[in-house]
């Protein structure tokens, strides 16, 4: 291979063309193979959970079932003691109205708590629908990665939580969340977000938003249990996550998601 000459440490590398081509092609194949594996992971549930005995929670929202009553947003605030005003939400509903000219009108007055009025005249509407939003409980969440004090994390159940005692309220995570799901709690002055009603899950109850949804548009479940209702649902429906290009490993799956939704 390499033979060093005695002059000043200069080295002359001797190699054959055949060997060089062989090494180069192996390297290229490995790189391509690795990058392919990496990029297709978002189709799976991203990170492989460590403790297999615990559930790995995911959420499904069926846009066709949502009627925009705002029960979820209202119940969430009551359950988690988030003040009604100022208008910060752990979960909220957006009304999308696609007009005949192709433009999209997105409104969410008071997070949808008081219901919606259609402001676009009927004859201009191409289609209209409601999109409930909440924390995506990403498996590779950008918000937990930026925390300088380790006060936010993905729990072994796949729920993104906040350590309120150690949060310093620096707002890094609020900036980092691509879905706008975090805010600074107006009373506690620390970061706040959807916990998937962790305190309810631990008692075996459904999250408050799912408890009160009159049409059953929301569903949560254990993604690791291949017989669970949520996995069955994901098998039978074409679901999509928001912003898959960001590779956040989102575990909030939308059924009947329109391309207009951001």
């Amino acid at each position: 291979m390499s033979q060093s000459t005695s002059t000043m440490g200069n080295e002359k590398v001797k190699t054959s063309r055949r060997k060089f081509l062989k090494n180069a092609s192996v390297l290229a194949a490995a790189t391509v193979g690795y990058s392919w594996l990496k990029s297709s992971q978002f189709l799976l549930h991203a990170a492989e959970p460590e403790d297999k005995s615990l559930p790995w929670y995911g959420v499904v929202i069926d846009i066709q079932k949502c009627i925009g009553c705002g029960n979820c947003a209202s119940a969430c605030k009551k359950e988690n003691d988030v003040p009604v005003e100022p208008f910060f939400f752990r979960t909220w509903v957006e009304q999308y109205t696609v007009k005949n000219d192709g433009s999209v009108n997105i409104i969410s007055p008071n997070g949808g708590i008081d219901g919606f009025k259609q402001t676009v005249p009927d004859e201009d509407i191409f289609k209209s629908f409601f999109v409930p939003k909440m924390c995506n409980h990403c498996a590779k969440s950008p918000c937990t990665q930026v925390c300088p004090v380790g006060a936010t994390y993905i729990s072994p159940e796949g729920v993104v939580l906040i350590d309120e005692k150690y949060c310093i309220g620096c707002r890094y995570c609020v900036q980092a969340c691509p879905y706008g799901c975090r805010f600074i709690h107006p009373v506690k002055k620390v970061a706040n977000k959807c916990t998937l009603c962790y305190h309810r899950l631990k008692k075996g109850l459904a999250p408050a938003c799912m408890e009160v949804c009159p049409t059953g548009a929301r569903m949560y479940g254990n993604l690791r249990d291949k017989d669970s209702a949520i996995v069955e649902y994901l098998k039978e429906h074409t679901t999509q996550v928001l912003r898959p290009n960001l590779n956040t490993g989102s575990k909030l799956y939308y059924n009947a998601l329109s391309s207009e939704v951001r």
């Binding site: 119940a75 380790g150 006060a151 939580l161 350590d163 408890e211």
Partner: peptide, 22 residues
């Protein structure tokens, strides 16, 4: 479990219920 306080999960499970469930 990771770069966080494991006891924080106990804190997160503490808040009182408001919705009792059906």
């Amino acid at each position: 479990y990771g770069h966080y306080r494991a006891a924080s999960m106990i804190d997160n499970a503490k808040p009182e219920l408001h919705y009792a469930g059906q």
